[in-house]
Amino acid sequence: MGKDVMHELKSKSWWDGSAEMWCGLKFKAGKHAGYIFASVSCPACKAAKKAGKR
């Protein structure tokens, strides 16, 4: 069984509820969950946030 990748939320649209992660991945409304006590495991999200990109 594989481990789920946890992405870090960069922005969420108030208009349509979609969400964009730091790595550039986009989810439609209802297709993502915000976890307060989860650690980010996506290496691309970590790198992009550290570099302040996207």
Rank of each mutant, 00 (worst) to 15 (best):
K53W: 06
F37G: 08
C45Q: 03
D16C: 07
G24A: 09
G52F: 07
S11Y: 01
A48T: 13
G30S: 07
D4Y: 04
D4S: 09
A48E: 10
K31G: 02
G2K: 06
G34N: 15
S18E: 05
A29R: 02
G17E: 05
G17I: 00
K46H: 08
A33N: 12
A47E: 14
K10E: 00
C23I: 03
D16L: 05
K31S: 11
R54Y: 09
R54P: 00
W22K: 01
A29E: 12
C45V: 04
K49F: 07
I36F: 10
A29V: 02
F27P: 01
G2W: 06
C23P: 08
Y35M: 12
C45N: 07
G24S: 11
K50S: 15
C23K: 00
K10M: 04
S11A: 12
K31W: 14
G30E: 08
K26Q: 13
W15Y: 06
E8F: 00
S41A: 13
P43K: 14
C45D: 07
S41N: 14
S18D: 06
G34W: 08
A51D: 10
A19Y: 02
L25Y: 10
K49Y: 10
W15H: 10
A33H: 11
A51F: 08
K49D: 02
G24V: 07
R54S: 06
V40S: 03
K12P: 00
A48D: 09
D16N: 13
D4I: 12
K50Y: 08
D4N: 05
D4W: 05
G52R: 08
H7L: 05
L25N: 06
F27L: 07
W15F: 07
A19R: 00
C23Q: 07
C45W: 01
K3A: 03
S39R: 14
H32E: 08
W14Y: 05
Y35N: 10
K49H: 13
K46E: 13
G17V: 01
K28V: 05
V5W: 02
K53L: 07
W15D: 02
S39K: 14
E8P: 00
A29N: 09
K46C: 10
R54L: 10
F27M: 05
G52A: 10
K26E: 12
K31M: 12
L25Q: 11
H32Q: 06
M6L: 06
A19T: 01
K49G: 03
C45F: 03
V5I: 11
Y35V: 09
